[in-house]
Deep mutational scan, measured.
Amino acid sequence: DEVTIHLGDKTIRVDGLDKELLEILKELARRGADEEELRKEIERWER
């Protein structure tokens, strides 16, 4: 499953996201997290 996250004018595509992680990323994005913060969160989950 590829998920596309839209952040204002930026788009991040991620393969096979965990549903819980997806919810966390959506919440972070709502709070104004930037792409770098979201990537760090994704990397934390992948470990």
Score class of each variant (00 low, 15 high):
residue 1 D to C: 09
residue 1 D to H: 13
residue 1 D to I: 13
residue 1 D to M: 11
residue 2 E to Q: 13
residue 2 E to D: 12
residue 2 E to W: 14
residue 3 V to S: 14
residue 3 V to Q: 15
residue 3 V to E: 13
residue 3 V to G: 13
residue 3 V to M: 14
residue 3 V to F: 15
residue 4 T to S: 10
residue 4 T to N: 10
residue 4 T to A: 12
residue 4 T to M: 13
residue 4 T to Q: 11
residue 5 I to F: 02
residue 5 I to H: 04
residue 5 I to D: 03
residue 5 I to Q: 03
residue 5 I to Y: 01
residue 5 I to K: 02
residue 5 I to P: 02
residue 6 H to W: 09
residue 6 H to I: 14
residue 6 H to E: 13
residue 6 H to Q: 15
residue 6 H to D: 13
residue 7 L to G: 04
residue 7 L to I: 15
residue 7 L to E: 03
residue 7 L to Y: 07
residue 7 L to C: 04
residue 7 L to V: 15
residue 7 L to K: 02
residue 7 L to A: 09
residue 8 G to Q: 11
residue 8 G to P: 05
residue 8 G to S: 11
residue 8 G to W: 09
residue 8 G to R: 03
residue 8 G to E: 07
residue 8 G to N: 11
residue 8 G to V: 12
residue 8 G to Y: 08
residue 8 G to L: 10
residue 9 D to Q: 03
residue 9 D to V: 02
residue 9 D to G: 07
residue 9 D to A: 02
residue 9 D to N: 09
residue 10 K to L: 15
residue 10 K to A: 13
residue 10 K to D: 08
residue 10 K to V: 15
residue 10 K to M: 15
residue 10 K to I: 15
residue 10 K to H: 13
residue 11 T to L: 13
residue 11 T to V: 13
residue 11 T to P: 07
residue 11 T to F: 14
residue 11 T to D: 11
residue 12 I to V: 07
residue 12 I to D: 03
residue 12 I to K: 00
residue 12 I to H: 04
residue 12 I to Y: 05
residue 12 I to C: 05
residue 12 I to Q: 02
residue 13 R to A: 12
residue 13 R to N: 15
residue 13 R to I: 13
residue 13 R to G: 08
residue 13 R to H: 12
residue 13 R to T: 14
residue 14 V to Q: 03
residue 14 V to Y: 14
residue 14 V to N: 02
residue 14 V to I: 11
residue 14 V to E: 03
residue 15 D to T: 09
residue 15 D to Q: 11
residue 15 D to E: 14
residue 15 D to M: 03
residue 15 D to V: 09
residue 15 D to N: 12
residue 15 D to F: 03
residue 15 D to A: 07
residue 15 D to S: 12
residue 16 G to Q: 12
residue 16 G to Y: 10
residue 16 G to T: 11
residue 16 G to W: 09
residue 16 G to V: 11
residue 16 G to I: 12
residue 16 G to F: 10
residue 17 L to W: 07
residue 17 L to A: 07
residue 17 L to G: 06
residue 17 L to M: 10
residue 18 D to W: 05
residue 18 D to I: 06
residue 18 D to A: 12
residue 18 D to K: 05
residue 18 D to H: 09
residue 18 D to Y: 04
residue 18 D to P: 15
residue 18 D to C: 02
residue 19 K to I: 11
residue 19 K to R: 11
residue 19 K to A: 13
residue 19 K to E: 11
residue 19 K to N: 12
residue 20 E to H: 08
residue 20 E to T: 10
residue 20 E to G: 12
residue 20 E to D: 12
residue 20 E to I: 10
residue 20 E to A: 14
residue 20 E to Q: 13
residue 20 E to K: 12
residue 20 E to S: 06
residue 20 E to C: 05
residue 21 L to Q: 03
residue 21 L to S: 01
residue 22 L to I: 15
residue 22 L to T: 06
residue 22 L to N: 02
residue 22 L to H: 04
residue 22 L to F: 10
residue 22 L to W: 09
residue 22 L to G: 04
residue 22 L to C: 04
residue 23 E to A: 11
residue 23 E to K: 12
residue 23 E to L: 11
residue 23 E to Y: 09
residue 23 E to Q: 10
residue 24 I to M: 08
residue 24 I to F: 07
residue 24 I to E: 02
residue 24 I to H: 11
residue 24 I to V: 10
residue 24 I to D: 01
residue 24 I to Q: 05
residue 25 L to C: 03
residue 25 L to G: 00
residue 25 L to D: 00
residue 25 L to Y: 01
residue 25 L to R: 00
residue 25 L to S: 00
residue 26 K to A: 07
residue 26 K to T: 09
residue 26 K to W: 14
residue 26 K to V: 14
residue 26 K to H: 09
residue 26 K to S: 05
residue 26 K to Q: 14
residue 26 K to C: 05
residue 27 E to N: 06
residue 27 E to P: 00
residue 27 E to Q: 05
residue 27 E to D: 13
residue 28 L to E: 00
residue 28 L to P: 00
residue 28 L to M: 15
residue 28 L to K: 04
residue 28 L to N: 00
residue 28 L to T: 00
residue 28 L to G: 01
residue 29 A to M: 12
residue 29 A to K: 07
residue 29 A to L: 13
residue 29 A to C: 05
residue 30 R to Y: 11
residue 30 R to T: 08
residue 30 R to F: 13
residue 30 R to V: 10
residue 30 R to S: 13
residue 30 R to Q: 09
residue 31 R to Q: 14
residue 31 R to I: 09
residue 31 R to C: 09
residue 31 R to F: 09
residue 31 R to S: 12
residue 32 G to Y: 01
residue 32 G to T: 01
residue 32 G to E: 02
residue 32 G to H: 02
residue 32 G to Q: 01
residue 32 G to K: 01
residue 33 A to I: 03
residue 33 A to V: 06
residue 33 A to E: 03
residue 33 A to N: 02
residue 33 A to T: 04
residue 34 D to L: 06
residue 34 D to R: 07
residue 34 D to Q: 10
residue 34 D to S: 15
residue 34 D to P: 10
residue 34 D to I: 05
residue 34 D to F: 03
residue 34 D to G: 13
residue 34 D to H: 08
residue 35 E to F: 07
residue 35 E to P: 05
residue 35 E to Q: 05
residue 35 E to T: 05
residue 35 E to N: 04
residue 35 E to A: 08
residue 35 E to L: 08
residue 35 E to K: 04
residue 36 E to Q: 11
residue 36 E to C: 04
residue 36 E to H: 12
residue 36 E to D: 14
residue 36 E to G: 07
residue 37 E to C: 06
residue 37 E to N: 03
residue 37 E to I: 09
residue 37 E to G: 04
residue 37 E to Q: 11
residue 37 E to P: 00
residue 37 E to V: 11
residue 38 L to V: 07
residue 38 L to T: 01
residue 38 L to D: 00
residue 38 L to Y: 05
residue 38 L to S: 01
residue 38 L to W: 04
residue 39 R to F: 10
residue 39 R to E: 06
residue 39 R to S: 05
residue 39 R to W: 13
residue 39 R to I: 14
residue 39 R to N: 06
residue 40 K to H: 06
residue 40 K to S: 10
residue 40 K to P: 00
residue 40 K to V: 06
residue 40 K to E: 12
residue 40 K to D: 10
residue 40 K to C: 03
residue 40 K to I: 10
residue 41 E to G: 01
residue 41 E to F: 10
residue 41 E to A: 12
residue 41 E to W: 08
residue 41 E to K: 02
residue 41 E to N: 02
residue 42 I to N: 00
residue 42 I to S: 01
residue 42 I to K: 01
residue 42 I to T: 01
residue 43 E to I: 05
residue 43 E to C: 07
residue 43 E to Q: 07
residue 43 E to Y: 05
residue 43 E to H: 05
residue 43 E to K: 05
residue 43 E to L: 08
residue 44 R to D: 09
residue 44 R to G: 05
residue 44 R to Q: 11
residue 44 R to H: 09
residue 45 W to Y: 08
residue 45 W to A: 02
residue 45 W to P: 00
residue 45 W to K: 00
residue 45 W to G: 00
residue 45 W to C: 01
residue 45 W to R: 01
residue 45 W to L: 01
residue 45 W to H: 04
residue 45 W to Q: 01
residue 45 W to T: 01
residue 45 W to V: 01
residue 46 E to Q: 09
residue 46 E to S: 05
residue 46 E to F: 11
residue 46 E to R: 03
residue 46 E to A: 06
residue 46 E to W: 07
residue 46 E to G: 06
residue 46 E to Y: 14
residue 46 E to K: 06
residue 47 R to S: 15
residue 47 R to D: 14
residue 47 R to N: 15
residue 47 R to F: 14
residue 47 R to Q: 15
residue 47 R to T: 15
